[in-house]
Design a binder for these strands. Structure first.
Length: 361
DNA sequence: TTTAACTACTCCGACTCGCG
DNA sequence: CGCGAGTCGGAGTAGTTAAA
């Protein structure tokens, strides 16, 4: 999981357990008025996922609930949440602080699966995003991921917005029936969180071979590159670029990243070959491909001017890049290309002069 | 040795989007 | 609905390279 979150070191220290946590609360605002009335915890033991839920049956019992949860956090090496950095952990810490209790999470490593999930699956043209938007649903919500990654569709699940009002109804009436689906929702969220985390960890461990398609390979490559695993990143980009079923945007970005990697490591000839391949991709008028083709023309112009000493070729490519400059940053990029063109013209004129001069002698 | 061009950083502000 | 972690693009800067 270190690959998935650079800040994360492998579990060590006193605890030994990886603990998945999900809260149901009385609202979203997160201030002192928001209470976690259900704390779900899950961990792997004896070959299965064990789930334990702490339900607050009255406000008076909150201190006891927090103490029981703190006890459950003992022996935890790693806490895993979904958006927990922003939501679950601050809510819990506020409650412990409110009761002037010790903070059981101090010193416990925390892995928030939301951000790696976005890196891995947000941009899937055929997957999470497209499917989610068709449903009017957000792209990387936990329930969306479980549907797209595992083909699971929840039946009769409680919408999150309904959860606080169901709890208030329970407090007023004492009837726990409206809470049953909330407990089930929390349990499913924990199972999903564990499954999504395990799936991401498998991808990170097994690399490009474990990817289902080019789009996932491209995303995993970005994750590896961020983590400094350059060779594994290149393997993923290669897989994405050569995937015959991959969308042209996916291939284009994969080639672009392979080319950048070559150039950064001063393998200029290999980089140039990739820029040529990128220019040969048939991307139609897709904005990303238009920009990548322009970028490749500019990079090839640099290569021809400075490495191959082919001023005419460089000029031709710079002209192409200028023609293809488009979009929001048109002016900045076109300006740089014009600057390049005028320098190339100057150099070509000098070359011509020196030839003439040489010829007269 | 000087100079221009390129590259790789860092920093900052403006976003986006998940949670019940 | 509010909050905040993370991302993205632009601007500025320091270091590197190679030609003259």
């Amino acid at each position: 999981m270190r690959v998935l979150d650079g800040a994360l070191a492998p579990p060590d220290g006193t605890g030994s357990r990886i603990l998945f946590v999900d809260l149901e609360t009385t609202g979203l605002s997160g201030g002192a008025g928001t209470i976690a009335f259900l704390v779900g915890c899950a961990w792997f033991d004896i070959g299965a996922l064990q789930v334990r839920q702490f339900l607050l049956t009255s406000y008076a019992a909150e201190r006891a609930l927090l103490a029981a949860v703190a006890e459950c956090f003992d022996d935890t090496a790693l806490l895993v949440t979904y958006n927990g950095k922003t939501f679950d952990v601050p809510v819990m810490e506020t409650r412990w602080l409110f009761h002037r209790m010790e903070m059981p999470l101090d010193g416990v490593r925390h892995f928030d699966m939301l951000h790696p999930a976005r890196r891995l699956w947000r941009d899937r043209p055929d997957g999470v995003a497209a499917d989610a938007y068709a449903d009017g649903d957000a792209g990387c919500r936990l329930a969306t991921l479980e549907r797209v990654l595992f083909g699971v569709r929840r039946v009769g699940d409680v919408p999150g917005m309904e959860i606080p009002s169901r709890y208030f109804r329970f407090l007023r009436s004492g009837n726990a029936a409206p809470l049953e689906p909330v407990l089930e929702h929390n349990r499913l969220d924990l199972v999903s969180l564990a499954a999504v985390t395990a799936h991401a960890a498998r991808l990170a461990h097994e690399g490009s071979d474990a990817c289902r398609d080019g789009s996932e390979a491209l995303a995993l490559g970005r994750v590896y590159e961020r983590a400094g695993a350059v060779d594994r990143a290149l393997a993923c980009y290669g897989r994405a670029a050569r995937d015959s079923h991959a969308a042209v945007d996916v291939k284009g970005e994969a080639l672009y990243r392979i080319g950048l990697r070559h150039r950064r490591e001063r393998r200029f000839a290999e980089a140039a070959a990739i820029w040529r391949e990128l220019r040969d991709l048939d991307g139609g008028s897709r904005p990303l491909m238009t920009e990548l083709r322009r970028f490749a023309a500019e990079a090839l112009a640099v290569h021809h001017e400075h490495r191959e000493r082919d001023l005419e070729g460089a000029r031709e490519l710079a002209l192409l890049a200028l023609e293809e400059a488009d979009g929001a940053s048109f002016h900045v990029k076109a300006e740089a290309t014009r600057h390049r063109l005028s320098r190339l013209d100057r150099k070509l004129a000098q070359k011509k002069d020196s030839h003439l001069f040489g010829g007269c002698i």
